[in-house]
Design a binder for these strands. Structure first.
Length: 119
RNA sequence: CCAGUGAGAAAGGUGCUCGCAGCAGGUAUAACCUGCUGAGGAAAGUCCGGGCUCCACAGGGCAGGACACCGGGUAACACCCGGCCGGCGCGAGCCGAGGGAAAGUGCCACAGAAAAUAUACCGCCUCACCCUUGUGGUGGGGUAAGGGUGAAAAGGUGGGGUAAGAGCCCACCGCUUCUUCCGCGAGGAAGAAGGCAUGGUAAACCCUGUCCGGAGCAAGGCCAAAUAUGGGGGCAGGUUGGCCCGACCAAUGCCCCCGGGUAGGCUGCAUGAGCUAUCCUGUAAAGGAUAGCCCAGAUACAUGAGCACCACCUUCCCUAUGGGAAGGUACAGAACCCGGCUUACUUCUCACUGGGACC
RNA sequence: UGGGGGAUCGUCUAAGUGGCAGGACACGGGACUUUGGAUCCCGGCGUGGAGGUUCGAGUCCUCCUCCCCCAG
């Protein structure tokens, strides 16, 4: 895994908290929920079974983790990332570009004001 | 060269940068550094069989389920190996839920005379009677050869025989029974006798034989935290108290339901029916001996991203024995662990079969 | 990960012990009506896939595919 255990979202209860009380960013490729918390960034990734069998889902999760890894220093939120179906037709480079922008917005949202929508 | 059959092997490689998990060490828990290790032949489907754990349990039976030619292998199996029989294929070979229908019960639609105690529709033959004397009718009897129906029609083919026919008789084939020989056995071979009895269906109920207690690592164990001695019902009538005995009352026991609380860590958790090599036994599956090796262990669930070179494939371009570019390199990801089965799927090797061409 | 259940026209559903797959709604056509609705008549449409047992399979057996539920 590209993210140390310390920075992972590790219980169903926390996922529920983020969905319920967090904010949301949408793009054609991803949906990101985030909620500012005290003890450092915590990342969770949810990949639906629609994306294929276990090998394919695991690979997608690894690629997303690889992208998220670079953003860990400037995040202070619990973040849940859900890829959407269009990700299947897109290269790693495009995924990285889109997700980089979204995560930068999450990082800014912690200090300055928050915009609920993107694009 | 083409088509095919059967065995077996591999699962792209090397280097660099960043990053993840486990273990060991470094000065001390988290952190940090170093080193080592890190998915599969199917890890899959969860279809069988075990180990392991808890619960239940005197023994046996009933119910329910699984299996079913023979011999062997195994911890066990529905698996594997060797064989038998049957079927398929020109062949190499492949396939088979392959016990019992002369214990019983059920079912066999439609069609057909009749679907299982045989029967007699069209027919064939014959006798008697009748008259309109005909290729006639009525009645009785003999038939199972021919027709027709069906998935299936009560041994088959040929000959003799007969009024017409029929295992009525004969030959061959099939079947049944018996004997001898071979084989551990399934069974095979030879011979004799019987005159044919026993339709199909048991992946219909069933019978016979063998085997099977239930649940599953979210099993189970330990620690921490939290709470309510709560409410209702059932069973048992044991223990204690009300001086003793009985009744009665109260508390306590076990099970179920409702309600409330907690839901975090450690362990199980990886040395095992283990892997590799050699030798011995065995046709083989497999077993034994010796030596060496340690080979994932997560808990929102670990292998990715970028780059370079090489190998292979496809497409395109060029000055085309060559060079370059782009894309691709199957099926697929361990979660308690093993033995199988089944399904998905790329490439290669070897042996064999049939056919064609050439020397 | 483990355990359990299911699949029949477009949708909802039937088919004791194997024997011509029916019905309702919807759909298409026609009649009635100036038109539409309602009503009446007619019609097509299906056993998740592959194989096996049987003369014959929606039904019995095996293997796949998909969906749902439970532990939560």
């Amino acid at each position: 895994m590209g993210i140390p255990r310390k920075y992972r979202l590790t219980s169903g209860r926390l996922f529920g908290e983020v969905y319920k009380r967090g904010k949301m960013l949408k793009s054609p490729l991803f949906v990101v929920y985030y909620l500012p918390i005290e003890d450092g960034p915590k990342i969770g990734i949810v990949v639906s079974k629609k994306f294929g069998k276990a090998v394919r889902r695991n690979r997608l999760k690894r690629q997303i983790r690889e992208i998220v890894r670079g953003h860990l220093p400037h995040l202070q939120d619990a973040v849940v990332i859900l890829p959407r179906m269009k990700v299947k037709d897109v290269s790693f480079q495009e995924m990285k570009h889109v997700l980089d922008n979204m995560l930068e917005q999450v990082g800014r949202g912690d200090s300055s004001e928050v915009s609920e929508y993107s694009k």
